[in-house]
């Protein structure tokens, strides 16, 4: 799992600018919401010292509802680090769906004894880098049963990750939002694994791996594992 978040200065009036701005705007606004969730957890922990599943759920529920209302996401919330909560090993203060159902604890639908979410990219990358991340597109068979992009940011207390704040966006939703700009620029948005997220070319399937060296115009982001590509 690699996060190729690179720092490339934004050249003005680039032919990629419109696509890049659309990607940055979507995730910029979403992460602003997730920062609110992260801050709420940090502040509450500093005040109370010990956190339970019930406390953290009560704390996060209104913010998750706000995130679901303000952004076209299918789920949002906070996922606790194993053993951080005093009463649960694994816990997801996460709401999803039209009815905003609480996930609480999950098992893999037909899988292992416990759903160990710590092996998933959306957990691993924030843990390893201490930075925000967008995982996917991938089929999330544990929570949404959909093809999604998962945005997560670490929630840190004294330098230790106590969980992640995150939100799931359906790939089809993101594609719909980006389509016009990507078509106008004739670009491809790829993730850190050089897989297509959304492309102007309708024959490039989302999730398809491509040889990115064939593209001469490249725009990376400071804080997203995505790049915008274009052939000259």
């Amino acid at each position: 799992m690699s996060s190729t978040s690179t720092t490339v200065p934004v050249p003005s009036a680039s032919s990629l600018a419109r696509s890049a701005a659309a990607v940055a705007a979507y995730f910029g606004a979403l992460f602003a919401c997730l920062e609110g969730i992260a801050e709420r957890v940090t502040t509450a922990y500093e005040e109370q010292g010990v956190m339970t599943a019930a406390t953290v759920s009560e704390l996060i529920q209104p913010l998750a509802a706000e995130t679901l209302a303000a952004h076209p996401v299918v789920g949002a919330g906070f996922v606790a680090s194993p053993d951080w909560l005093s009463d649960r090993e694994h816990y997801l203060a996460w709401w999803q769906g039209e009815d905003q159902r609480l996930l609480a604890e999950r098992g893999v639908p037909i899988g292992h004894h416990v759903f160990d979410y710590t092996r998933h990219e959306w957990w691993q990358v924030p843990l390893a880098t201490g930075l925000r991340h967008v995982a996917g597109p991938y089929v999330d068979y544990v929570c949404t049963d959909e093809y999604v992009l998962t945005a997560t940011m670490p929630v840190l207390v004294e330098g230790r990750m106590v969980g992640v704040a995150g939100a799931d966006t359906l790939l089809e939703t993101f594609e719909g939002l980006m389509r016009e700009d990507v078509r106008a620029d004739d670009t491809i948005v790829v993730n850190g694994h050089d897989r297509v997220v959304v492309a102007a070319d309708p024959l490039l399937r989302s999730g398809q791996r491509i040889d990115t060296t064939a593209y001469t115009e490249v725009q990376a982001f400071d804080d997203l594992p995505f790049r915008v590509l274009r052939r000259t």
């Binding site: 679901l68 769906g97 009815d99 159902r101 996930l103 068979y141 929570c143 959909e146 359906l170």
Partner: peptide, 17 residues
């Protein structure tokens, strides 16, 4: 903008629906 789908989980959702 196209309609946003907000499905919950189906497999587990079916159990807890």
């Amino acid at each position: 903008m196209t309609e946003i789908r907000r499905h919950g989980s189906r497999a587990r959702g079916a159990i807890f629906a």
